[in-house]
Amino acid sequence: MHPETLAIYQSRMADANAGAVVPPISLSTTFEREADGSFPHGHIYSRSSNPNRDLLETALAQLEGGFAGLAFSSGQAATMTLLLALRPGDHVILGDDAYHGTPALLEELFHPWGLTYTRVDFTDLEAIRSSIHENTSLIWIETPSNPLLKIADIQAIADLAHNAGAWCACDNTWATPILQRPLDLGCDVVMHSTTKYIGGHSDVLSGALIFREDGDFYQRVRRYQTLGGAVAAPFDCWMLLRGTKTLTTRVKAQSATAMQLAQFLHEHPAVEAVHYPGLESHPGHAIAQKQMTRFGAMLSVQIKGGSDAAMAVAGRVQLFTRATSLGGIESLIEHRASVEGPNTTTPQNLLRISVGLEHADDLITDLEQALNALT
């Protein structure tokens, strides 16, 4: 089935009580045994499984083309649980441009625990190859990257990982399974901050891992999901399932608008650089064309005049909301370096934009008036 159909079909559940079309929310934390001690519906305790979580995990696995999904209380909880399934002494390779919470986890939590890691430019395959050690167990891809939208060649990097006997994971939050399917390109695991596009309305915090196939690594992570207990709540799963039903329509519309904004910003005299893989001038454009169906709804723009000019533009917009996050129906803008803190490597004149569902002309007019005030 096509993604549009899968998103609807996989979120259905037969309701024996009332025949409800929309799956009911199952808030029960525990489930009744039969007289012989068996569990006829497969559920024992909600930390282990829940009807709403089962539905969500199945739907996400179907959308990504994977064997199974695991839903967590946040994207960070999903990433942390995956890293916990590695061993002290293992080595991880991560891109030099990535969501700042991922290297923070590695540095503050897992490095003292015994993991080592190397950050390299993921647009340089030779740099990745030369960073692989005998103890490299995981290569973590993020493409498009946050916040510079660098494009990594998923298939080529997955091949490097597998040739070295390592796992390959991809943070697919920005692309979503509608635009990019890393499991089809050789990745073993996909991570989503489902808070973002899959939820789609900035009102639910959650994360997910989707595995390409069964095996020891998957079983270990699944066991840690239950032991650690950082699982998605039933109501959150219900909200996320609702989000999957409109995911395709939302992401296609947002991506089309983002392209128009990128083209406008690329031509504006107050703009130093636009980072958007849909532009032919983007260094990763050809690879993005190969592995993405569209170029996404995220873009970053560097403003001439430094940090003060960037903050001034963010302060003048009227339709964009100045807020951290992305993937919702409302357009957001933020000065990313100030969010990431004193150790950031993000350019001080960079604004990160998450494009929502407003009309493109209105968003362009808003950006134009904010930028024109600089000139």
Score class of each variant (00 low, 15 high):
V317H: 09
Q155A: 15
G200H: 02
A288I: 14
H335D: 03
A35G: 07
S130K: 15
S202T: 13
I364F: 08
A232T: 14
R223M: 05
L179M: 08
P283C: 05
G315N: 12
P51L: 00
G243I: 02
L84A: 10
R53G: 15
G165V: 00
I178F: 13
W167S: 05
G305Q: 06
D96Q: 12
Q254S: 09
E340Q: 04
D153F: 09
F67K: 11
M80F: 12
I44T: 14
A78V: 10
L105E: 06
T81N: 12
P283E: 05
W140A: 06
E108V: 11
G315A: 11
G75P: 03
I154V: 13
T244V: 14
G65A: 14
I198F: 01
L185K: 10
A158S: 15
M311P: 00
A323P: 03
P342H: 09
K245T: 14
T346I: 08
G65V: 03
F235K: 15
G207N: 10
T136D: 00
P3M: 02
I151H: 02
G207T: 07
A233D: 13
T365V: 13
L279S: 11
Q62S: 15
G284N: 02
G75F: 10
G341P: 06
L326E: 10
Y197T: 08
G243K: 04
T344I: 00
T176V: 08
I198D: 03
A7F: 01
L55H: 01
E213P: 10
M298L: 15
C168M: 01
H192R: 08
G66T: 13
E267S: 11
G89D: 13
S202Q: 13
H111C: 07
T176K: 05
G327I: 05
G228M: 14
N17Y: 06
L351I: 12
Y224P: 05
L56C: 09
T58Q: 11
M239G: 03
R250P: 00
Q254W: 04
C170H: 11
A273G: 01
F320A: 10
N146E: 08
T257R: 05
V274K: 01
K304Y: 00
T58S: 14
G19P: 14
E368C: 07
